[in-house]
Nucleic acid binder design. Structure first.
Lengths: 147, 147
DNA sequence: GTATCTGCAAATGGTTTGCACGCTA
DNA sequence: TAGCGTGCAAACCATTTGCAGATAC
């Protein structure tokens, strides 16, 4: 994992490079995304941002997250139950380990599957642009609670 | 790929085994799910079903798909753009190859990742209950069209 | 015969949008 | 000062739900 503060600087620089303005609300969203390792939801980002800027609106959080998503600086993880979580630290495809009970999301160390991507490109003629690998399970904490 | 008609029989049997009634509308949904290899959306299932039963409602299709999902007989694939596709042929985790242009979904032959599941169970203490592996790309057809 | 299923229409709820005002650069 | 960004509230829209009538078994 790279330094979260370095990542924050990077996000600020790239926003500015594209001519976007850096408002306090945006800065707070960037901080939450860059400094959190917990793959927050929009609602969670909103709650965190409101601590510093109580009059921030949910719509603004949505707009900022959407902007970052379009810039490719945030990875969106949509799930079957309609929930969406965001990763601003590593905005490129990587495996996730999801607890189906408490919804915690971890980034496990794991061999990459990019070799499989290459194989698909060859055998199917697809130009691969991304992938997603999720493991769903019950975390030790929830297993104990249920025992 | 197993025989779609065998799969259809299987679905019918399992529905009945749980005491559910087999209405014409349900039968048409089962057929669409079992006999299609194209991972249809609810809307697509609805269009197909209406050919045989024009007065079928969208709500009924939703209810039947939800029932099958709860029975574990249909795999739901939700995507970031809010679209959802369903697989009634192989309702267990398996890799998908998705064209980001035309939304076609294929089941590529591919080594399984269950070995990685086992490893996560050991290293992280998770009880793994499922996984998802998707590759996103541009299919040969769409690549040619764009060239 | 009766409990389940269907169709309709209304409700739901996360996300998006339109607009007038405010603030960054 | 020129626009971009914000906050508010309304709009959106796929999906779910409630209910009265229809139907599988």
């Amino acid at each position: 994992m790279s330094d979260p503060n370095v990542r924050l600087e990077e996000l600020v620089t790239r926003l500015r490079a594209l001519g976007h303005r850096l408002t306090p609300q945006r800065m707070a969203v960037l901080q939450t995304l860059a400094l959190s390792d917990s793959h927050p939801s929009v609602e969670q980002i909103y709650e965190r941002v409101k601590r510093d800027f109580p009059m921030t609106s949910l719509a603004t959080v949505y707009k900022t997250v959407t902007l970052l998503k379009e810039m490719g600086e945030v990875l969106e993880l949509g799930f079957s139950d309609d929930s969406r979580r965001y990763d601003g630290s590593k905005p490129y495809p990587h495996p996730h380990l999801v607890c189906v009970r408490c919804k915690e999301i971890l980034d496990p160390d794991m061999p990459s599957v990019s070799g499989l991507s290459d194989r698909l490109a060859q055998t199917r003629g697809y130009q691969i642009v991304g992938h997603r690998l999720d493991f769903y399970g019950i975390c030790p904490c929830c297993r104990e609670r249920e025992a």
